[in-house]
């Protein structure tokens, strides 16, 4: 019986060693996570968190120091597991002698698909990623965004069960990003699992069923986005009336604040606050400055939740 999990990672650790083993760097530490089939899961984390290391272990490009990783019940990196994966690297390099069409033919052949067999799907995919008119154009003339689109078409060509996409919208314009989001959602409707590595939290929030947050090699959170709301990450929207200088002075303590002037005396502000006591303090400060609070709304922000999850360690590191 096949596994119900698309990805299963158990107590995975990875340590990089220098050439003579003199220096060691812990990239992943005891990471366990599972991804059910048919889900869109996004991997988040600051730079150096271990996201790329995890993706490379899933693809078999790196070997884990400890622990195991499986793709649909097969050991990660095995030929059988790689048959089921469609992968888009962050910096896709396509040999300069290829056109968009010939690159897809080549990638298809690497999966054992004959050119004639892959033709209808190639044409459909080039159309879907907006490269139908550029099918015969050499890839050396492509912009980064066009290469990303081509890479995405290549990842989808062999009808994989699992898509691993590393920064799929990097270098794309807003229309291109929407197109990629639509393709990802369509792939989900077809029953595919999508494992996404992205820095664009807004996009992640729009399409993901689950997020996994890595920081300094450790898994900080893995689950539904809604679950993060319960982790006290508060984003507040306030509608205020009063002197602007007084309001600004009261809110200066809380870092970055989004200001929107509604009229001479009214403002809408959005800010991130650590917890409920911070909200109370903020309101007390505004009231002490003679500012009227017309409304108060709690918003959810993945960015806020993300920063809250990864910030404490950073602060600790900075102060060390």
């Amino acid at each position: 019986m096949g596994s119900t999990l698309a990805i299963e990672v158990t107590r995975l650790s990875k340590t990089y060693s220098s050439s003579f083993g003199l220096r060691r760097k812990l990239a992943l530490q005891d990471v366990s996570l599972s991804v059910a089939k048919g889900q869109i899961v996004s991997l988040l984390g600051p730079n150096g968190a271990g996201k790329t290391t995890l993706v490379k272990i899933l693809l078999g490009l790196l070997r884990p120091s400890h622990g195991t990783a499986q793709i649909a019940g097969q050991p990660a990196g095995s030929v059988r597991s790689r048959r089921r994966i469609g992968y888009l690297p962050e910096n896709l390099f396509t040999a300069t002698h290829h056109t968009a069409s010939s690159a897809l033919v080549f990638w298809g052949r690497l999966h054992g698909i004959a050119p004639a067999e892959s033709r209808p799907r190639r044409e459909a995919l080039l159309d879907a990623v907006g490269l139908a008119t550029a099918a015969r154009v050499p890839v050396k003339q492509f912009s980064k965004g066009m290469r990303q689109r081509l890479g995405l078409a290549g990842a989808l060509l062999h009808q994989p069960d699992l898509l691993i996409l590393d920064e799929p919208t990097d270098g794309l314009d807003p229309a291109g990003r929407k197109m990629v989001r639509d393709l990802i959602c369509e792939a989900k409707r077809e029953g595919k699992t999508i494992f996404l590595n992205s820095h664009l939290l807004q996009e992640v929030e729009q399409i993901s069923d689950q997020v996994a947050i890595l920081d300094q090699g450790s898994l900080k959170y893995c689950g539904a986005i809604a679950g993060l709301q319960q982790k006290d990450a508060l984003r507040i929207e306030l509608e205020l009336r009063g002197a602007e200088t007084e309001a600004q002075a009261a809110l200066d303590l809380y870092g970055e604040v989004d200001w929107q002037r509604l009229d001479e005396q009214r403002y809408r502000v959005r800010l991130n606050l650590a917890d409920q006591s911070a909200v109370d303090q903020c309101i007390d400060g505004l009231r002490a400055g003679g500012i009227s609070i017309l409304s108060l709304k709690q918003l959810f922000s993945l960015e806020g939740a993300f920063l809250k999850l990864v910030a404490p360690d950073d602060e600790g590191k900075d102060s060390a």
Binding site: G60, V79, P89, F93
Partner: peptide, 18 residues
């Protein structure tokens, strides 16, 4: 070297190749 450069080798090795 072209085959084993970053962005090329990771894509190739994600395919079912030995």
């Amino acid at each position: 070297p072209e085959t084993y450069r970053s962005g090329s080798v990771d894509l190739l090795l994600s395919k079912p190749l030995n």
